[in-house]
């Protein structure tokens, strides 16, 4: 007991020794939330590419950073309430005799499935690729759209 008082170790609740940890975890979460508001870059599924998904009452907007990938090397599919992105990033080898100083850009294949939170209308999906950013506009299914209810 003397040891505990001397070093100021928090008085752990013996019944639930993890409550202190739980409290710390919650504080950490609050702190992160305050820094990024509701955006938490870094918490991702671990599958290439990382995506940003936003919505408005009519649509879902799915965006991914895919620099150096041409539209022909990209495959976007919509099924049910899933969107699948797959493709290959090619980095053509340089002509002639060149010596590399740095090589950070990577080539390879990728494939990812994204579950959308609601039903979609697969017929109306539109995708565009500009400046290395893929943008997929996914219309929500009629029944998934929020409906304004007037009070009679």
């Amino acid at each position: 007991m003397i040891y505990r008082r001397m070093f100021g170790i928090p008085n752990w609740n013996v019944r639930s020794p993890f409550s202190e940890l739980e409290r710390m975890r919650r504080q950490m979460g609050d702190l992160l939330e305050r820094v990024y508001e509701n955006a938490l870059p870094g918490l991702h599924a671990g599958v290439f590419p990382t995506i940003n998904l936003t919505e408005d009452p009519e649509m879902y907007y799915l965006r991914a950073e895919l620099p150096g990938i041409s539209a022909g090397d990209l495959d976007v599919q919509a099924t049910g309430n899933k969107m699948s992105l797959s493709g290959e990033r090619k980095i053509p080898s340089e002509k002639g005799d060149v010596q590399y100083h740095r090589r950070e850009r990577e080539a390879g294949k990728f494939s990812r499935v994204i579950n959308l939170p609601g039903d979609i209308d697969p017929e109306g999906v539109k995708a565009s690729l500009a400046d290395g950013i893929l943008e997929v506009r996914v219309p929500k299914a009629e029944k998934a759209k929020p409906r304004q209810i007037t009070i009679a």
């Binding site: 955006a39 870059p41 990382t50 995506i51 940003n52 998904l53 936003t54 408005d56 939170p117």
Partner: peptide, 16 residues
């Protein structure tokens, strides 16, 4: 450039 319209509500944000 800005990532979408301001009317959009974020659902999942994986990159900044």
């Amino acid at each position: 450039g800005s990532d979408g319209e301001s009317s959009e509500v974020p659902v999942v944000i994986e990159y900044g």
